[in-house]
Design a protein around this nucleic acid. Sequence first.
DNA 1: GTCTATAGCCAGATAGAC
DNA 2: GTCTATCTGGCTATAGAC
Lengths: 190, 190
Amino acid sequence: MSTSETSERLIESTRELLWERGYVGTSPKAIQQRAGAGQGSMYHHFSGKPDLALTAIRRTAEEMRGKAEQQLGGPGTAVERITAYLRRERDVLKGCPVGRLTQDPDVMADAALRAPVDETFVWLRGRLAEVLAEGVACGELSAGLDPAVTAATVVAVLQGGYVLARAAGSTAPFEQAVDGVLGLLAAQSS
Amino acid sequence: MSTSETSERLIESTRELLWERGYVGTSPKAIQQRAGAGQGSMYHHFSGKPDLALTAIRRTAEEMRGKAEQQLGGPGTAVERITAYLRRERDVLKGCPVGRLTQDPDVMADAALRAPVDETFVWLRGRLAEVLAEGVACGELSAGLDPAVTAATVVAVLQGGYVLARAAGSTAPFEQAVDGVLGLLAAQSS
DNA sequence: GTCTATAGCCAGATAGAC
DNA sequence: GTCTATCTGGCTATAGAC
């Protein structure tokens, strides 16, 4: 196969550490220790920390899109699918593994590392806008609702909900923020 | 005065660097260089990086509350004050100097550093809930609107808007997210 | 109060043996 | 493919002179 067992463990360890500690806070040594690999292994499979991080970030971004599509592309009305997406089980206190990278100056400064982060949110906003537009088209939602800006609001509530939950050390503010936007959206139902 | 000029410059430099690079990404050396102070100065005025960071974070949190109160405690209806707060001029691409700290594992792991972050968002959600409750009480907003959860939504839209803007390298998604939640809120007006 | 010197440790990577 | 040895430089702090 194209990726060895060791390479695979290095990628998964990097994904975990990027989620827990960010790019700046993650050292090659920490990655190697978690993966149970030596320095030689890591520098054989990857050119360095940026290369390994890029592989890890791409995989995490792809995973996030896949999970979102499970609810957004599922059965039900527009509001039902968005509700399912927002209320899906999540590691709220760990935050969003993609959104967290936007706070990492070294990631944002590197066009290659930043691209998958950008693309993920562009896709997510677009996908949510599609779902909302379907709701408007079939009369489920008010014709006055703007799908694109409302999609941005929904994604922002999620990302901001993570921030509030981490600040509080509790999932409660996240759930409140989600309940609040769903309440506002319910008022748009015909 | 209680704080010397040098101490003051160290605090301000720390505030800037915490905003730009976070706690993990900010070294004592970088702080000293930006402040134009030597190591001796820094360790004379502060016991170390955590002490200096705590002073900086407390000041930033206080400043954020003061700025929010300018709009939330100003004139106008509930929706007008919330609109003024959300549309206030901001360094959108730099993100929120308090919210960004929630992504810093070393800040969240230290109860003293984390407390001002927690308190800031508790206060902000409470203050917004008060404003929304006033709107409901005077009949400006629908009686079915829950002030506490909607307040969490509004704060989350702001924090998440910053995330989307940084990911995109553009303020557009932030403005869309704000427009979206204000549109949903407008539909609650009698 | 501020400076320089020093110290131990870690980051990030290279070299070359096996 | 993986290992150990090695290197340069930065991090964080202490010591003690001025």
